[in-house]
Design a binder for these strands. Structure first.
Lengths: 222, 222, 222, 222
DNA sequence: GATGAATGAGTTTTCATTCAT
DNA sequence: CATGAATGAAAACTCATTCAT
């Protein structure tokens, strides 16, 4: 389809000054992406915004794509950390805790630079931000799968192998979309209980507390 | 952020000859997108592939973006139809039928031109394919919501207002991702029961059949 | 410099219907020139404005330039007529009458479609409207020269051969410019006496009436 | 009518190298205009003629029009200077001197690149060369008007407010036209005395020397 | 004659990238 | 290392003109 090319930074900046330059360039790229969109994000504009010459940009980055990739990696790295903080250890946690961790982690990681996230997802071609986001999620599949396996008896899983994957994908899918369409739901706390129920109902329907006549009214979509 | 511009076709073809031309152009665009990716999808290449002159392309489409939009609209239109066929009427269906329709409809609509779908999602900037896909889904929210409301008694919904939305988003999120990462699951019939259980567990956990010791091993991801 | 090409209409319309079509096309050209300027005056737009197909335009006009030339010829023809009406016969007129005729004729001919005149002069390249306008004026040089020669005795002309030319050029130059910069002057009657004096002072300074202390204030430039 | 767009240079050249580039581009534009006319004056041809890449042209000029404007500004600047040299100070000069300065200044400024002048006037659309030329002239109106006012007593002006304008327009009109139609007249010295008489007869007819029976024959128009 | 779909050479313009200073 | 002038391939797009119907 399309030709591959190097997207990794050209050289590691060793000295402090260089490191600052590289940082400035990456931040400038993010800023331009946010302010003007991908199409208007030219290398010259990035250089200008960063306050360096275009030559300096090419000192550290082999091409334009690598600039955007650097921004994406930085952003995904932060998301990764946010998720890791919550999901890091769930070895001996009980089911509600695990579900809560998962849902909470997903929500938290999507609170990081949501506008930049949107631009990376919707506007940047070829970068494969969606794929990388999925991969990020997938890293936790083994962890979740392991826990599920370890607690199989209390669960009602017809297909434990697929469960971790489906569960992660479902939460990520809902959160991701809500962030784009109804960001208010996250802040209002509407989303979290729904997701908790969604996952709990999936893993262990018999443990879902019976909710008779919920008098709580539906929230207005923003 | 970025400036808007017209993406609607320039003029309606009146004669039969020109109608064929327009069709050829749109199909050529899709073909080039698939074969060479978005970046290589230049207007001249589209014209060449369609077997028309570049002038004819601009006779009917104001700019490059409008070409891709036309492809997207055609594709989403087909998806829409596929979903509508299944979800069209669920007024007096029972719960399992409704869930099955939903899940089945989503799966079916994602079977349409999955490679083109992927290109539109991952490579085409600014077009907002993701957004449009979400909008397509959202059209069915009222339908599903109405059904949920009509059958509230047999359900266990703490927040019926959000339920339809979450439910659709979850299924779409999982299906969409599985299509990209594990397309085999769909054909193998792995996904459908999982999604059915996911939604059933969400809407009415007390109705999920108890599955003791499923001896079926997890399928290997392709 | 640039290549010559045919600018005359392709064929004379013989039938009434064709004549109407040609007329419609020429008028449409003028209308588009006025409304949108030369750059936006494309053949297709002219055809559309005229309510005929582009093919019909090329039935009667060999190329775009001939369209604009036709407009110019029509316009200059009208100017020509206006001037001719005044300058047609001055054989036995006296000096003030001749000068008045000249100045009046120039003023009158510049009252014809001044906005179209401006567009033709300022925007249309290659057509040579300025040159044609000069040529139009120059047609009257022999007439004026003959009169001057016939009345040499009462004049004070050091170079009667040049006088007609200079005189015409001066009046045309002033009128033309005033039309662009201070059109109000023409209507207010400011210009005519000045031009009369200019020419009379040139041809026969001793005949200029002595104007002591003109208390009339200067008119405000619009 | 037509949309405005930027015609000013894009960036000021800072280094010596780029200053030479800009100069080469402007000169090349003038050369191409002269040699091939406006229609054939494409940006690529200008770049080629200047010996720079097309990219360098767009580094300093936002579009084609701005190139031609730069040429026009340069040309008008030179004209301006030529006129200023003569008209700069006429505070305490006497009438014949002032008239001579005016006429001489106009003639001199029209000796500057007459062929380029013609191309700019006749071929270049939208640039408004005629208007700018008028504006250039008009700058001197106050100067001339002030002088006229200061010497009102010795003049015979029915409308001093209009006099300066009419006078300038008349001379410019004649000179401009003679340059196009009878350039020889300027060199042969035919024009200057005629214009002097024209203006003198306008401002102070009683001061025009009586010319009896000029035996000099009229020169043949080239 | 009339139509308007089709043409395609030719233009302007952009922008990632290089490299002399 | 930093600079920014210079590059030029390549893209989008226009519009006068032709010609089959």
């Amino acid at each position: 389809m399309a030709t591959q090319r190097r997207v990794t930074p050209r050289k590691r900046p060793s000295q402090g000054r260089s490191k600052a330059t590289v940082e400035a360039i990456v931040q400038a790229t993010a800023r331009v992406l946010l302010k003007d969109g991908y199409e208007a994000c030219t290398t010259n504009r990035v250089a200008e915004t960063a306050g360096v010459s275009i030559g300096s940009v090419y000192q550290y980055f082999p091409n334009k794509e690598s600039l955007v990739v650097a921004v994406m990696e930085g952003h995904l790295g932060q998301m990764q950390e946010a998720l890791a903080r919550r999901l890091g250890e769930l070895s001996d946690a009980d089911l509600p805790t695990v579900v809560k961790s998962m849902v909470g982690g997903m929500l938290e990681m999507h609170r990081i630079q949501p506008r930049l996230h949107r631009v990376l997802l919707e506007q940047v071609p070829r970068i494969g931000a969606l794929k990388r986001l999925h991969e990020l999620n997938d890293q936790y599949e083994p962890l979740v799968a392991a826990w599920l396996e370890a607690h199989q008896e209390q669960l009602e899983l017809p297909n434990p192998g697929a469960a971790a994957y489906v569960m992660i994908a479902a939460v990520e899918g809902v959160v991701s979309r809500v962030m784009l369409e109804k960001p208010g739901w996250v802040e209002l706390g509407v989303l979290e209980p729904q997701l908790t129920r969604l996952i709990l109902g999936y893993l262990a329907p018999h443990l879902v507390p019976i909710t008779r006549r919920a008098p709580s009214p539906a929230p207005a979509a923003p």
